[in-house]
């Protein structure tokens, strides 16, 4: 990573899940679908509660693919903010999601990886899985974010 890249979103000490969960007042839609931050050991994870109102296919039943995307997008934004102290809110410029398996009505977890924390653009990858099946993700997503001018 280029040193000058770090000026705008300094990687400091990561904020805790408790701090992040205090931000949901500002994100009503994330609260509506039931997103939470949690810590598992050293890792910051996000969880989507299994709400029946999040179902997209009642026959299986399976979660709405758009809800899974909204969950993963929320995770991407909050994870960037958690790693940069939470002072600025990055804007999502594009978001791309691959659906690998249907997401059942059970808790869904997500982890994020910063590909590049640039001065202007941030690249984040997100993986989502259910139960202990982390090696069998339900979806993989990628987002680009920009810092507001």
């Amino acid at each position: 990573m280029n040193e000058s890249d770090l000026q705008s979103g300094q990687l400091g000490e990561r904020l805790t899940a408790t701090t992040i969960n205090g931000w949901f007042d500002l994100i009503p839609y994330a609260r509506l679908i039931g997103v939470q931050a949690l810590e598992q050991g050293d890792e910051l994870l996000f969880q989507l509660q299994p709400e029946s109102s999040n179902v997209g296919n009642p026959l299986l039943p399976a979660l709405h693919g758009g809800v899974v995307a909204a969950f993963m997008e929320t995770a991407a934004v909050l994870s960037v903010m958690a790693h940069t102290g939470g002072k600025r809110v990055p804007k999502v410029i594009d978001f791309s999601i691959d659906y690998l398996r249907s997401a059942r009505l059970e808790p869904t977890l997500a982890s994020c990886q910063l590909g590049r924390l640039g001065k202007r653009v941030v690249n984040v990858s997100v993986a989502a899985w259910q139960g202990e099946r982390r090696d069998e993700p339900v979806a993989l997503a990628r987002a680009h974010l920009v810092w507001p001018e």
């Binding site: 839609y29 994330a30 709405h64 758009g66 809800v67 995307a69 909204a70 969950f71 997008e73």
Partner: peptide, 8 residues
Amino acid sequence: IHGGLLTV
């Protein structure tokens, strides 16, 4: 509006 709502 949340970007994820637009995705839905």
